[in-house]
Amino acid sequence: MVRGNDRSRELILRRIEEAVGFSLPTPLPAGPAVQRDWDIEARFIEEFTRAGGVIYRAGSAEEAGKILQEIAREVGAVRAARWGSPLLDLLQVDAVLAAVGVNIVSLPADDRELYGKELDSVHMGITEAEHAIAETGTIVLLADPGRPRAVSLLPRVHVAVLPREALLPTFEDLFPRLASRGIPPSAVTFITGPSRTADIEMTPVMGVHGPQAVYIILLESSPSSQAR
């Protein structure tokens, strides 16, 4: 933005240049090597569970559907929201949940406040996870028009469907992929377990502002490869 702020910008940059000079950096050589010698699926499950998340494996789209129904029953969900993503469409999430009396709400598009209130009143948010980091048990969510950020944030429960192929060993494996996209998505969110705090007397409490519980349905095989 070109404003009176230009002057401050010039002054600050000038002071920095007086301090360290101006030079084009040569990129740093590679950093220390990172361990990767563990089974990524086992490690992911261990870490995600250790962080307080719950993970189920599904061998098929049908199994995934059943698990989703089970989770909905367990958390007493009546209303849910989901991402509009091909994988979730393929899993027929709307039908699967309707079968157990859970209604998928459609989220208001133009009213920010209404959007927030609606999503806040929903019990369960269902998303995909495009990537996952096994080392830390972290799922990675990328924002785009069909994949709003708050679906994994406002509802009390977050369910993420994670295809096994999305598993990567470490962050070092993920970042080059992100970097190769050019401009990253508006938001890349790393989620490891439910939200938490220890602000009061250092006592850990799960479920602060973000979801109280996170479930992952790990898809062992891609649903599109199955006959339906």
């Binding site: 959007y115 924002a143 508006s186 938001a187 890349v188 377990g193």
Partner: peptide, 24 residues
């Protein structure tokens, strides 16, 4: 900072929301 392997959330934010996005 907290003796955690990783925190519950890390957000990477690049600019405002893009066209068509519902939130952000």
């Amino acid at each position: 900072a907290t003796g955690q392997r990783i925190t519950s959330y890390i957000s990477l934010i690049t600019g405002p929301k893009r066209l068509g996005e519902r939130d952000g």
